[in-house]
């Protein structure tokens, strides 16, 4: 039982970081970023090269991953999504663009980084015992870093001027514009921040699970599940969705025959969405 709880906490913390980035972008742009998993993958590769190959400290590699992926997100918003969101009359256009950017990043990564799985040495060694459960020090550190970043993000969104502008944008784009907020600048900042969070998540995950050019789609799918559970565009909902999915996996793998765990998760998700399509914390659409 202790091991299930430990596994659930580790999964929830890392998943929360993945979900926060995608929900941030969704709330500001009303855009489901299909390339989120691929941006996360790029972050993983940045840490692989900076920390694993060039031997620089992990404390340098993680910010590099955040900055590089943040710039990718910024570039996507300014060069691609801004115009499409403004000009397109249907939401599908921006969704298709997002799918396109996902395929672009995946193929560029395959070309540039190769087909192999990459991994880095653990940041710290050793394994703790929590009751009967095993908790490797590297996993504990990743959880602590993820929790610190989640708290930092919540504080940023809650108390800083750009953070408040992002929340306003998420609530009503037109009113925010009329209030004198530079909507385009805040959108670009939000996209960069969401992408940067994905990059950090990738940089943390690479120490636990490595990275390869093809991991993006599966991670994006998990991110979508989390924000559907919690409520798309709601920061607290993303965290809640991550906790639900993390513990569902941990409990499922321990107590339910293996191949039915995700089957049950998807069946549960479908039933849940039928009853509450806006997610746990989302507001129903009028």
């Amino acid at each position: 039982m202790e091991q299930i709880i430990v596994n659930g906490v580790v999964l929830s913390a890392t998943y929360a970081l993945v979900a926060l980035g995608i929900t941030l972008i969704f709330s500001i742009m009303n855009l489901l970023n299909f390339a989120h998993g691929q941006i996360l993958m790029i972050g993983g590769f940045m840490v692989y090269y900076v920390y694993g190959v060039f031997g620089l400290p992990y404390a340098v590699a993680l910010p590099v991953a955040a900055v590089v992926t943040g710039l990718i997100g910024f570039g996507f918003e300014v060069l691609l999504f801004r115009r499409v969101v403004r000009v397109a009359t249907r939401e599908e256009n921006s969704m298709l663009l997002a799918v396109g950017t996902a395929l672009l990043l995946e193929n560029l990564a395959l070309f540039g980084f190769g087909e192999k799985q990459r991994g880095v040495p653990s940041i710290v060694g050793g394994v703790y015992r929590v009751g009967a459960a095993f908790l490797p020090a590297g996993r504990l550190l990743v959880v602590l870093i993820a929790l610190a970043l989640i708290v930092a993000l919540l504080l940023f969104v809650q108390y800083t001027r750009p953070g408040r502008a992002m929340r306003a944008l998420a609530q009503d784009r037109e009113v925010t514009y009329l209030m004198g907020v530079d909507v385009e600048r805040i959108s670009a900042l939000g996209f960069a921040l969401g992408a940067g969070l994905a990059g950090i998540a990738g940089g943390l995950l690479v120490t636990l699970s490595g990275v390869n050019a093809g991991i993006g789609t599966a991670l994006s799918t998990k991110a979508f599940i989390m924000i559907m559970i919690g409520g798309a565009g709601v920061v607290a909902g993303a965290i809640l969705g991550a906790v639900v999915l993390g513990f569902a996996e941990a409990v499922g793998y321990a107590l339910i025959p293996g191949s039915t765990t995700y089957l049950l998760i998807f069946v549960g998700l479908i039933l849940f969405l039928v009853l509450r399509p806006q997610g746990i914390m989302g507001k129903p659409q009028r």
Partner: peptide
């Protein structure tokens, strides 16, 4: 009968069992 899904990033849960 223990399996994991494609795209799994954390194998601790399945390997615990």
């Amino acid at each position: 009968d223990d399996t994991y899904e494609g795209g799994t990033t954390d194998f601790f849960p399945v390997m615990s069992k």
